[in-house]
Structure formats: C-alpha cells, structure tokens
C-alpha cells in the first residue's frame, strides 16, 4: 500500500516537472544577458529585456493592449448574450432548443481552423474590412459557449422554489430576478466570463485567419518566434505569468477566508 503511494507520487511529480519545464525555461531565459539572435546560450543575468519591454521597442506591449481591448469587447458582449441565452433556454421546453444549443456549442467542439477559415471567407465575401469588428465577431462566437455552459450548469443546480417563494411573497418577475436568481448565478457568470477572457487572450488560430493587419499578442508572438526571436517575448510572458499567479493566489486567499461563512449558510 505504502509503495503504491510512493509510486503514484513519483509519477505525478515527474509529470508536473515536464509540465513546468518549458514555462521555467521561458522565465529563466528572460533574464539572459546574451543578445545574440542565433544562439540562446545562457551567458549571465541581466534585466535588459525587461527594460526593453518598458520602452516597448518590439511592439509587444502594444500588441498586448490590442489583445486586452479585444478580450474586453468580446467578453462584454458574450457575457450578455451567453447569460441571457442560458436564462432563456435552460428552463424552457420549446421546439428548436436542442438545435440552437448544439449549433451554438459547435465553435468549441470543432477544430478551430474550420471556424477561423469559414469566418474569414464570409468576411471576404461580405466585404467586411474593419479588423476589430471581424475579431470581435469571431471571438464572441467562441466565447459565448463557455459562458452559456457555466451559467447553465449553475442554473440547473438552483432550487426553482426559491424564485417561486419570492414571487409568492409579492416580488414582481424583475425584482425576483435581481434579488434571487442573479445573486445565485453570479459566481457562474463571473467564472464563465473569466474563462472566456482567458480563451480570447490566448486565441491564435482564429485570429490568425480573421485579422488582416491588426496584431494581437498571440499573433505577435507567433511571428517573432518564427523569425529570430527577441527574448523580450520571454520577459513579457514572465510578467503575465506572474500576474496570473498573483491573481490566483489572491483569489484563493479571499475564498479561504469566506469559506467558514459559506458553510454556515449551507447548514
């Protein structure tokens, strides 16, 4: 029994090391003093790439800003469309509901390249030229399913009698929604939106097909990884990773503090 535990711990550890190895290398090399474009040999510690980043000499920071702007628009729109969709479709028994649901989930079920190419072809046909409009349409299309799924899961777990109780006590449908349903689904709405935000920020394939000249961060990283890389890419990614790690740590700390209170509510 004991040997089995050690074996499984060892396996998990080896796999995790493999999972983190490339990430660690990216962070380590962001401090490289070597400036050669062709060899990456680690020659010493330096923060030169971070300084370069501050002055945005390679356009990486402006690409990040474009990506953040795009993610904000897309998630804002998807948040409304997906949440309303879940509220409308989850409970209702109507014709065509299954078809709408299947079709709306397709963007995250099929290889990204299909949606990317198909959207590009339609935009070419329709003569849509504005890159940001094209990108937002594409991103909303694959962000809505994430929000819809998470909110729907939250709604199915909800006790419908709560809403009925509010109505019995004299609350109108709008009031019942804002004081009962919304607070209950809010965590789902937030985590779905966060997930959609991460997906939008990370998307490469679909943006690659849809965008003409607008450069999002993943597109910028792709082109700089293909043609001689500047280690500024590493520096930027290290900063982003640190930001995410701190955000996760903070949210864990906050939720831990809240836990005892939640337990009381459940009892």
């Amino acid at each position: 029994m004991r040997r089995k535990r050690v074996g499984s711990a060892l396996f998990l550890a080896v796999m995790l090391v493999m999972l983190y190895l490339p990430v660690a290398v990216v962070v380590l090399y962001s401090f490289n003093a070597n400036t050669s474009r062709f060899t990456f040999a680690f020659t010493g510690f330096s923060t030169q790439y971070y300084q370069g980043l501050l002055h945005d000499t390679k356009g990486l920071v402006s690409a990040l800003m474009t990506s953040l702007e795009l993610a904000a628009y897309s998630c804002g729109l998807s948040l409304v469309i997906g949440t309303l969709g879940a509220l409308g479709l989850a409970g209702a028994q109507m014709r065509g509901k299954g078809a709408v649901e299947t079709l709306s989930l397709l963007p995250v079920m099929i290889p990204e390249i299909i949606l990317g190419f198909a959207l590009m072809a339609v935009f070419t046909f329709a003569g849509v030229k504005n890159d940001m409009v094209k990108l937002v349409i594409a991103h909303v299309t694959f962000c809505v399913p994430y929000i819809y799924l998470v909110v729907k899961a939250r709604l199915t777990g909800m006790d419908p009698s709560l809403n009925e109780a509010a109505r019995d006590l004299g609350a109108g449908p709008v009031r019942a929604f804002f004081s009962v349903t919304l607070p209950l689904i809010l965590p789902g709405v937030l985590s779905g939106t966060l997930l959609a935000f991460a997906m939008s920020l990370d998307d490469f394939v679909i943006s690659f097909f849809v965008s003409d000249t607008t450069v999002t961060l993943p597109l910028k990283i792709y082109s700089s990884v293909k043609t001689g890389v500047s280690l500024q890419v590493n520096a930027l990614c290290s900063v982003m990773l640190a930001t995410v790690a701190i955000a996760v740590a903070l949210s864990k700390l906050l939720s831990r503090k809240k836990e005892p209170g939640e337990m009381k509510n459940e009892e």
Binding site: L84, A92, L103, V122
Partner: peptide, 22 residues
Amino acid sequence: GALLGLPMTLWTAVFVGIVLLY
C-alpha cells in the same frame, strides 16, 4: 425564454449556421 434566448439564437444562426453553410 425564447425572448431572452433571442440574441444567442440569432448570433448562432448567423455566425455559426450561415457561416458554415457558406
């Protein structure tokens, strides 16, 4: 429900349905 689901239904119909048909 149909009314609330309308934006998602329309979006899906146009940007998934019509796009894949094209």
